[in-house]
Amino acid sequence: SMGQARALMGLSAQLDEELDFREGDVITIIGVPEPGWFEGELEGRRGIFPEGFVELLGPLR
């Protein structure tokens, strides 16, 4: 894990590789696949999402 982030708003996945989450969910960050995107894990599910949907809870490791 690289850190954690809290969802500022919900994301309804449009693509298979995207992660669904609700506002307030705390997501474990597991990677940065490309600039502007995070890869995360939530409730046993993994996927990517735009960084603008979340606030980091501390610096990434």
Score class of each variant (00 low, 15 high):
residue 16 D to F: 02
residue 20 D to F: 09
residue 44 G to A: 00
residue 10 G to I: 00
residue 43 E to S: 05
residue 30 I to P: 01
residue 7 A to N: 03
residue 60 L to R: 13
residue 1 S to P: 04
residue 6 R to G: 01
residue 44 G to C: 01
residue 25 D to A: 02
residue 6 R to S: 03
residue 6 R to M: 11
residue 49 F to T: 00
residue 36 G to S: 00
residue 17 E to M: 11
residue 27 I to V: 05
residue 38 F to T: 00
residue 8 L to W: 00
residue 40 G to C: 02
residue 17 E to L: 08
residue 24 G to S: 12
residue 20 D to V: 08
residue 34 E to M: 08
residue 25 D to H: 04
residue 31 G to S: 11
residue 1 S to W: 11
residue 45 R to M: 15
residue 20 D to E: 15
residue 30 I to M: 06
residue 54 V to C: 08
residue 47 G to D: 02
residue 38 F to L: 07
residue 40 G to R: 00
residue 14 Q to N: 13
residue 39 E to R: 02
residue 9 M to S: 09
residue 19 L to Q: 00
residue 54 V to H: 01
residue 25 D to V: 05
residue 56 L to V: 11
residue 2 M to V: 05
residue 9 M to W: 07
residue 45 R to Y: 01
residue 51 E to V: 09
residue 32 V to E: 11
residue 4 Q to L: 11
residue 39 E to W: 10
residue 23 E to H: 02
residue 1 S to N: 13
residue 38 F to V: 00
residue 14 Q to H: 14
residue 48 I to Q: 15
residue 40 G to S: 04
residue 45 R to F: 04
residue 55 E to W: 08
residue 56 L to S: 05
residue 6 R to F: 00
residue 7 A to V: 01
residue 14 Q to V: 11
residue 13 A to M: 06
residue 20 D to C: 14
residue 48 I to W: 11
residue 45 R to G: 00
residue 36 G to T: 05
residue 61 R to Y: 12
residue 58 G to A: 11
residue 28 T to A: 07
residue 39 E to H: 10
residue 23 E to T: 11
residue 32 V to L: 08
residue 56 L to G: 08
residue 30 I to H: 10
residue 51 E to L: 01
residue 38 F to I: 03
residue 37 W to T: 14
residue 25 D to F: 00
residue 46 R to A: 08
residue 28 T to Y: 08
residue 8 L to V: 11
residue 32 V to M: 09
residue 12 S to M: 12
residue 49 F to A: 06
residue 29 I to D: 03
residue 3 G to M: 03
residue 8 L to F: 05
residue 14 Q to L: 06
residue 2 M to H: 04
residue 4 Q to E: 03
residue 13 A to Y: 01
residue 24 G to D: 08
residue 9 M to P: 03
residue 29 I to K: 07
residue 54 V to N: 04
residue 21 F to S: 05
residue 14 Q to Y: 06
residue 58 G to V: 07
residue 5 A to C: 10
residue 25 D to N: 04
residue 55 E to V: 07
residue 12 S to I: 09
residue 29 I to Y: 00
residue 13 A to R: 11
residue 18 E to M: 07
residue 57 L to F: 14
residue 3 G to F: 07
residue 59 P to M: 08
residue 51 E to F: 05
residue 13 A to E: 12
residue 7 A to T: 09
residue 39 E to M: 05
residue 59 P to L: 06
residue 21 F to H: 05
residue 3 G to P: 06
residue 59 P to V: 09
residue 12 S to L: 04
residue 37 W to F: 13
residue 1 S to G: 13
residue 54 V to W: 05
residue 25 D to C: 00
residue 3 G to L: 07
residue 29 I to N: 07
residue 38 F to Y: 15
residue 49 F to Y: 10
residue 13 A to S: 15
residue 48 I to F: 12
residue 19 L to H: 00
residue 34 E to Q: 08
residue 58 G to L: 06
residue 18 E to T: 11
residue 42 L to W: 04
residue 31 G to A: 06
residue 30 I to G: 02
residue 51 E to A: 15
residue 42 L to H: 13
residue 41 E to I: 14
residue 41 E to D: 02
residue 5 A to K: 03
residue 59 P to T: 03
residue 58 G to I: 03
residue 37 W to I: 13
residue 28 T to L: 06
residue 45 R to I: 04
residue 29 I to T: 02
residue 19 L to A: 00
residue 27 I to D: 01
residue 23 E to V: 14
residue 16 D to R: 10
residue 19 L to N: 02
residue 56 L to P: 08
residue 51 E to W: 05
residue 49 F to Q: 05
residue 23 E to N: 06
residue 15 L to I: 14
residue 14 Q to P: 11
residue 18 E to A: 08
residue 54 V to E: 02
residue 10 G to Y: 10
residue 7 A to Y: 04
residue 60 L to N: 08
residue 42 L to Q: 04
residue 12 S to G: 07
residue 21 F to A: 02
residue 34 E to C: 09
residue 11 L to H: 15
residue 11 L to A: 10
residue 41 E to C: 06
residue 31 G to Y: 00
residue 12 S to F: 09
residue 31 G to I: 02
residue 15 L to E: 14
residue 42 L to N: 03
residue 45 R to C: 00
residue 31 G to K: 12
residue 60 L to G: 10
residue 17 E to P: 07
residue 3 G to V: 09
residue 11 L to V: 08
residue 40 G to N: 04
residue 19 L to Y: 03
residue 41 E to F: 05
residue 3 G to A: 06
residue 13 A to T: 15
residue 1 S to F: 13
residue 61 R to H: 11
residue 29 I to E: 01
residue 38 F to M: 06
residue 23 E to D: 00
residue 29 I to S: 02
residue 31 G to T: 03
residue 60 L to P: 08
residue 18 E to C: 11
residue 23 E to I: 10
residue 18 E to H: 14
residue 55 E to D: 09
residue 17 E to S: 13
residue 48 I to H: 08
residue 40 G to A: 02
residue 60 L to F: 08
residue 28 T to Q: 08
residue 43 E to N: 14
residue 60 L to Y: 06
residue 53 F to V: 10
residue 11 L to P: 01
residue 44 G to P: 03
residue 15 L to P: 07
residue 10 G to L: 07
residue 25 D to G: 02
residue 53 F to K: 09
residue 8 L to H: 03
residue 56 L to R: 08
residue 12 S to K: 12
residue 34 E to W: 14
residue 2 M to I: 13
residue 5 A to V: 03
residue 41 E to L: 09
residue 19 L to T: 02
residue 39 E to I: 11
residue 38 F to D: 06
residue 4 Q to G: 04
residue 19 L to V: 03
residue 49 F to L: 07
residue 55 E to C: 04
residue 39 E to P: 05
residue 22 R to H: 14
residue 12 S to T: 11
residue 19 L to G: 00
residue 59 P to A: 00
residue 10 G to C: 12
residue 46 R to D: 03
residue 14 Q to F: 07
residue 30 I to A: 04
residue 41 E to T: 15
residue 12 S to Q: 14
residue 54 V to I: 00
residue 36 G to F: 04
residue 8 L to G: 01
residue 4 Q to P: 05
residue 1 S to C: 13
residue 15 L to T: 15
residue 43 E to A: 12
residue 61 R to C: 10
residue 34 E to Y: 13
residue 56 L to D: 04
residue 19 L to D: 08
residue 1 S to T: 12
residue 58 G to W: 07
residue 30 I to W: 09
residue 11 L to C: 11
residue 11 L to E: 03
residue 40 G to F: 10
residue 15 L to Q: 15
residue 52 G to D: 10
residue 25 D to W: 05
residue 32 V to C: 11
residue 56 L to W: 01
residue 29 I to V: 09
residue 9 M to C: 14
residue 39 E to S: 05
residue 9 M to Y: 11
residue 32 V to G: 08
residue 18 E to K: 15
residue 17 E to Q: 12
residue 49 F to P: 00
residue 4 Q to H: 14
residue 37 W to K: 15
residue 54 V to G: 01
residue 22 R to S: 09
residue 13 A to N: 15
residue 42 L to A: 05
residue 61 R to P: 15
residue 11 L to R: 15
residue 30 I to S: 05
residue 59 P to Y: 04
residue 42 L to T: 04
residue 6 R to E: 02
residue 18 E to R: 11
residue 14 Q to W: 02
residue 36 G to H: 07
residue 22 R to D: 09
residue 37 W to N: 05
residue 42 L to C: 07
residue 61 R to W: 08
residue 9 M to I: 10
residue 53 F to H: 15
residue 60 L to Q: 15
residue 15 L to N: 15
residue 44 G to K: 08
residue 46 R to Y: 03
residue 32 V to A: 13
residue 7 A to Q: 04
residue 59 P to E: 07
residue 17 E to V: 11
residue 54 V to T: 04
residue 22 R to P: 13
residue 31 G to D: 11
residue 58 G to Y: 07
residue 27 I to Q: 06
residue 32 V to N: 10
residue 16 D to Y: 04
residue 22 R to I: 11
residue 19 L to C: 04
residue 46 R to T: 09
residue 36 G to Y: 03
residue 41 E to P: 04
residue 49 F to N: 05
residue 48 I to G: 01
residue 53 F to T: 12
residue 6 R to A: 04
residue 21 F to I: 06
residue 34 E to K: 14
residue 30 I to N: 08
residue 17 E to T: 14
residue 28 T to D: 14
residue 44 G to Y: 01
residue 8 L to T: 11
residue 45 R to N: 10
residue 22 R to V: 12
residue 60 L to A: 12
residue 15 L to M: 14
residue 26 V to A: 12
residue 10 G to P: 09
